[in-house]
Amino acid sequence: MAGEPQTDCLFCKIVTGDVPATIVRETDTTVAFRDINPQAPTHVLVIPRAHYPDAAALAAAAPELAADVLREAGEVAADEKLEAHGYRVVFNTGSGAGQTVFHAHAHVLGGRGLQWPPG
């Protein structure tokens, strides 16, 4: 069920502390942590504490929580001093788009030139 923790979800396990992560920010509704396979000098994931399989499901079921994730992405960028040179916030939705963990999450990427379109 959407919103409920999933025992087989890596990110749900990070939320509960059962899987370690380098946490950079936490709120009542979100957790932000460093990606273990960074694609830029700064690569932080921002996830809702509640489980939703992807960004579309999160936005449809809990738009206020989706807004929390986006707000925290901005806070991460500020904390990481990315604002002056720009940063990217990416939601991969579906395996064809590169989503590998099916718990909604935003990638905050910065610290180098980020040309468009991405690879």
Score class of each variant (00 low, 15 high):
residue 1 M to T: 00
residue 1 M to Q: 02
residue 1 M to A: 04
residue 4 E to P: 00
residue 4 E to Y: 10
residue 5 P to C: 04
residue 6 Q to E: 13
residue 7 T to Q: 11
residue 8 D to G: 06
residue 8 D to T: 15
residue 8 D to S: 15
residue 8 D to W: 13
residue 8 D to I: 03
residue 10 L to S: 06
residue 10 L to C: 01
residue 12 C to S: 12
residue 12 C to I: 14
residue 14 I to P: 00
residue 14 I to E: 01
residue 15 V to M: 01
residue 18 D to P: 00
residue 18 D to H: 01
residue 19 V to T: 11
residue 20 P to A: 12
residue 20 P to I: 06
residue 25 R to H: 06
residue 26 E to R: 15
residue 26 E to W: 14
residue 28 D to T: 15
residue 29 T to Y: 10
residue 29 T to M: 10
residue 30 T to V: 08
residue 30 T to L: 09
residue 32 A to G: 07
residue 33 F to A: 08
residue 34 R to P: 00
residue 35 D to Q: 08
residue 35 D to E: 11
residue 35 D to M: 07
residue 36 I to M: 01
residue 38 P to Q: 03
residue 39 Q to T: 02
residue 40 A to H: 13
residue 43 H to Y: 11
residue 43 H to W: 11
residue 44 V to H: 11
residue 45 L to A: 04
residue 45 L to P: 02
residue 46 V to D: 02
residue 47 I to D: 05
residue 47 I to L: 10
residue 49 R to I: 15
residue 50 A to C: 12
residue 50 A to Q: 15
residue 50 A to H: 09
residue 53 P to F: 01
residue 54 D to W: 10
residue 56 A to E: 04
residue 57 A to F: 02
residue 58 L to F: 13
residue 59 A to H: 08
residue 61 A to L: 09
residue 62 A to K: 03
residue 62 A to P: 00
residue 63 P to V: 04
residue 64 E to L: 11
residue 64 E to G: 15
residue 66 A to V: 06
residue 66 A to D: 02
residue 67 A to P: 00
residue 68 D to F: 05
residue 70 L to K: 04
residue 71 R to N: 06
residue 73 A to H: 05
residue 74 G to Y: 02
residue 74 G to W: 00
residue 75 E to Q: 05
residue 76 V to F: 12
residue 76 V to L: 09
residue 77 A to D: 07
residue 77 A to W: 07
residue 78 A to D: 07
residue 78 A to P: 04
residue 78 A to Q: 09
residue 79 D to C: 13
residue 79 D to E: 15
residue 80 E to W: 09
residue 82 L to Q: 01
residue 82 L to K: 00
residue 84 A to P: 01
residue 84 A to H: 00
residue 86 G to P: 05
residue 86 G to M: 08
residue 86 G to I: 03
residue 87 Y to W: 12
residue 87 Y to H: 12
residue 89 V to Y: 02
residue 91 F to M: 14
residue 93 T to K: 04
residue 93 T to V: 14
residue 94 G to Y: 10
residue 94 G to S: 07
residue 96 G to W: 12
residue 96 G to T: 14
residue 99 Q to A: 14
residue 99 Q to H: 08
residue 101 V to T: 07
residue 101 V to D: 03
residue 106 A to I: 05
residue 107 H to A: 04
residue 108 V to K: 03
residue 108 V to C: 08
residue 110 G to M: 04
residue 110 G to T: 04
residue 111 G to Y: 06
residue 112 R to T: 14
residue 113 G to F: 04
residue 113 G to Q: 10
residue 114 L to I: 08
residue 114 L to D: 03
residue 116 W to P: 02
residue 116 W to F: 11
residue 117 P to Y: 00
residue 118 P to Y: 15
residue 119 G to R: 04
residue 119 G to D: 13
